[in-house]
Every structure is written in C-alpha cells, then in structure tokens.
C-alpha cells in the first residue's frame, strides 16, 4: 500500500524560529491520524506544507503529488478545513453550495443539501448571521459532499461547545470516514478525540517526538501506578516520566515488558493525553 503522505526532512524557518526542523513521517490510507503538539510546535506549518500553502525544504509527497508544484491537481483529492472562522462572512448558504459545486468536480450538491435540511441552517442565510456552531455544520456539509481521499482538519472544533464538538466528530466518523479515506487532524482537545485516532504523531519544537499507530502504543508504553513506598524500587527500571497523584506515583515506561513491571503495582496502557504530557515534558526545551 502506498502512503497517502510521505514526508522526509521537512524544514521551514520563520526568521530565527525553526517551525519545522527535519520532520519525517508517513501516513497510510484509511487511517485517522492525530497531529498533536503544544502551541507553536509546528503543527499548522506542517499542515500548510502538506496543503501547498507555504514553501518549505525537504521531500514531501501527498497522494503521490508534490504540493509545491502540483497543488492544483492535489486539491481535487484533498479537502481541508482550518478552524471555524474561514467561511467568507458575506456568503449565503445557497451561494456556498453553488460556488463549491461550480468549481469542484467531486462535489455532490444533493448530499450537502440533504445534510443541511436536517439542521436549522436556512439556504438564504449569510454566514455572518449563523452561530459559530452552525458555520461549522455548514462547512462540514460542504466537506461531507466532496468525495476526497484526504481530509485535513486544523483545530476544526476550536471555540465550539461540547455538544457541537461531539456531533462534529460523530458525523465525521459515521458519515465520512471509510477505508479509502484518510483524515489528518490537529487539536488541543486530545482527551476528547483520542478514541478516534488510529495513529498519532507528536510534534514539538519542529521535530517529531513520537509517531506510532495507537495499537502499537500499548506494546511500547506502559503506565505503572505504584504506592509511594514501592516507587524507589520501580524507579530503578528507569521510567521516562513520573507524576504523583493522591499519594501514588504514576510512572511511564518505554520498551519494558508487562512481565517486568507487573510486580510493582497496577499496570495499564497510558492514555494518549498522558503520553503526550509525558513526552512533551520529557523532551528538552530548546
């Protein structure tokens, strides 16, 4: 199977700041990949490189195309949604359907109309008259109706309330995602969507801190919860991160087998959010 995205040594600097500093990763078809990192880690720059919105150094193939030179071709197969506020405020809902249908060969207007008919959004409304949640629904309706192979979402639910966020991801998963499609998603709200991901890429200071499928995480990382008394002996096995919670110590280990650790306390697979915090704090700041 060929990779949907193949990145090798992506580099990009804004003045003295290295937004991307040799980023390499690959994304297979039919995956939902979380690109996770703190603010200013280079997530958005990486997405912009993938979408051909910014120049960069290094090798990058998206659906076998180079976003720098073949962007026009690429955008027929790729959909993206930057955070909610990018639909033009003057645009009417009916005009949005007409304009996307008028320029996008893979847009199915009937499908978008059907989706919108189940919301409170009226065809004659302008975007500026809609609530933030409704604008997101409208954008989602447009995206669901485009038969694209790669969907890139950059903080798609930023500033939405929990109900809209939940509906957004439910719709995405039930109505959009299938084995031929790939979703690349950045978000701050890791806890909320971590069950969605099949793969995660942690990025920090312009570098990839971790790139793995979610299934493989369980074999590679262990979280051990031990009592304070047992902590010093467990510490001899070199956890890369530890945290004290209510008198117990949570330790994260990389590359230790369950058999090695089981004797010390309660063993579990760390959540992506915990792993993220551990990895970010474990990585030396520059």
């Amino acid at each position: 199977m060929t990779a949907v995205i193949e990145a090798r040594g992506l580099a990009k600097a804004y003045g003295a700041t290295r937004a991307l500093d040799g980023v390499s990763f690959s994304v297979e078809a039919g995956r939902i990949v979380g690109l996770i990192g703190p603010n200013g880690a280079g997530k958005t720059t990486a997405l912009k490189a993938i979408l051909g919105l910014t120049p960069f150094r290094g090798e990058l193939q998206v659906l076998g195309l180079d976003p720098r030179t073949q962007r026009d071709e690429l955008m027929r197969e790729v959909c993206f949604m930057a955070d909610v506020a990018v639909l033009p405020r003057w645009l009417r809902v009916s005009q949005a359907l007409e304009v996307v249908g008028g320029v996008h060969p893979r847009f199915d207007r009937a499908r978008a109309t059907e989706f919108l008919s189940k919301t409170d959004i009226r065809m004659q409304s302008r975007v500026r008259e809609l609530s933030k949640g409704m604008v997101t629904q409208l954008h989602l309706a447009l995206i669901l109706a485009i038969d694209a192979r790669l969907l890139v979402l950059d903080e798609p639910t930023l500033g939405l309330d929990l109900l809209y966020r939940r509906k957004f991801y439910d719709t995405l998963l039930n109505d959009y995602f299938d084995k031929e499609r790939t979703i690349l998603l950045t978000t701050h709200q890791v806890e909320e969507v971590e069950n969605l991901f099949t793969d995660v890429i942690f990025i920090n200071h312009g570098r990839v801190a971790l790139s793995s499928s979610v299934e493989a995480l369980g074999g590679r990382y262990q979280q051990l919860n031990v009592s304070a008394e047992a902590a010093p002996t467990a510490r001899a096995l070199q956890p890369f991160y530890e945290r004290e919670v209510f008198g117990r110590v949570a330790m994260l280990f990389e590359g230790r087998s369950a058999a090695e650790l089981r004797g010390f306390g309660e063993l579990r697979t760390p959540s992506i959010a915990d792993l993220f915090v551990a990895k970010m704090q474990g990585t030396p700041s520059t």
Binding site: L51, L53, D72, M75, R76, C79, F80, M81, A82, V86, L87, P88, R89, V99, V100, V103, H104, P105, H139
Partner: peptide, 9 residues
Amino acid sequence: SILFWKSLP
C-alpha cells in the same frame, strides 16, 4: 477566508 478559497481546486 483565503483558507476556504484555497481549499477548493
């Protein structure tokens, strides 16, 4: 809104 227009082919 350029990010929307640029999401179209």
